[in-house]
Design a protein around this nucleic acid. Sequence first.
DNA 1: AGGATATATCTTCCTTGGAAGCTATATTGA
DNA 2: TCAATATAGCTTCCAAGGAAGATATATCCT
Lengths: 168, 168
Amino acid sequence: MDHVARIQQEWARERPDVDVRPAGVIGRLHRVAGHLTERLCLVYRRFGLAEGEFDVLATLRRAGAPYERAPGELAAHTMVTTGAMSKRVDRLEQAGLVTRRPSESDGRGRVVALTTAGLELIDAAFTEHMANERRLLDALAPDDAERLEEILTRWLAVFELPVGEPPA
Amino acid sequence: MDHVARIQQEWARERPDVDVRPAGVIGRLHRVAGHLTERLCLVYRRFGLAEGEFDVLATLRRAGAPYERAPGELAAHTMVTTGAMSKRVDRLEQAGLVTRRPSESDGRGRVVALTTAGLELIDAAFTEHMANERRLLDALAPDDAERLEEILTRWLAVFELPVGEPPA
DNA sequence: AGGATATATCTTCCTTGGAAGCTATATTGA
DNA sequence: TCAATATAGCTTCCAAGGAAGATATATCCT
């Protein structure tokens, strides 16, 4: 009887007219995601980074040399607004991990680039980040991990590869 | 080739020395959780509630008549700090959905209780919330949903029913 | 060419939550 | 009893992101 099962039991007592079975999957998914986020952030912290900052550096690193992206691209990749991205880049620039310069081809545009310090930091942080994810995943039987990935891939496709936007 | 697979492919090119397979499961889990949260919030919004406020009202409702809890209990159940709970209760009290009064048995304590308006609102909102979760889950094959719940239950137990706290 | 519209980024204000500390009350132990 | 400590809730300050609007530049259409 875990935390989510207890919640479902209470609802079943208070609201017997409602089918609360869906909360079992969705509740546990959210709790697992929350615990994972917490553990992942511990590693980011060891490198002086918050989650959002790690994401930005990782996105720049993944782009390949010369490790540059427009702020708008970074925002789209990391699923935040461009306003939030302005502030993330402010902080990273302040920390000397990225630079910001005008685009040569578009007077409205800016180019955010990793500095040498930023590149070294994200390379070190990413190595430990993946080792951390490996450890977290090792708590699960290999068969479970494989099936979990398959199922989540199918579910994610419903949200991200929609034929027609499903209703809210 | 979904979004997460694309990210893995980029990492494989840039950092062939690192095994990025764990990011497949963990990345998709986070993205699915994010999409679900977004959809759930749409329903909360229709009742004028933010996610945290819905959680507080739901926790009070689940407690059963007379729908009361101490702020500290609410904080523990909804996984926020007591400081955050003070502010949530402020907003709900302002909206006339809960009341706050001194505890009779402990001079330090307070009792947060649903008002009639709060009870009616959370009952209506919860009914639609569960219908919403049902719809979201119906995007998945029943077999997948069942297996997903089993796997997540096992994984969650690692975090929430630990024999010895696993390392970060 | 030049006005209308679109786009990229940034700025400002607002919301939410965390961390740390404050106050009042309870409990414990000499 | 009464000083020391613990606990409950609240307040203050700060961090981070969203929404909306401001500014500068691009593009399109006549």
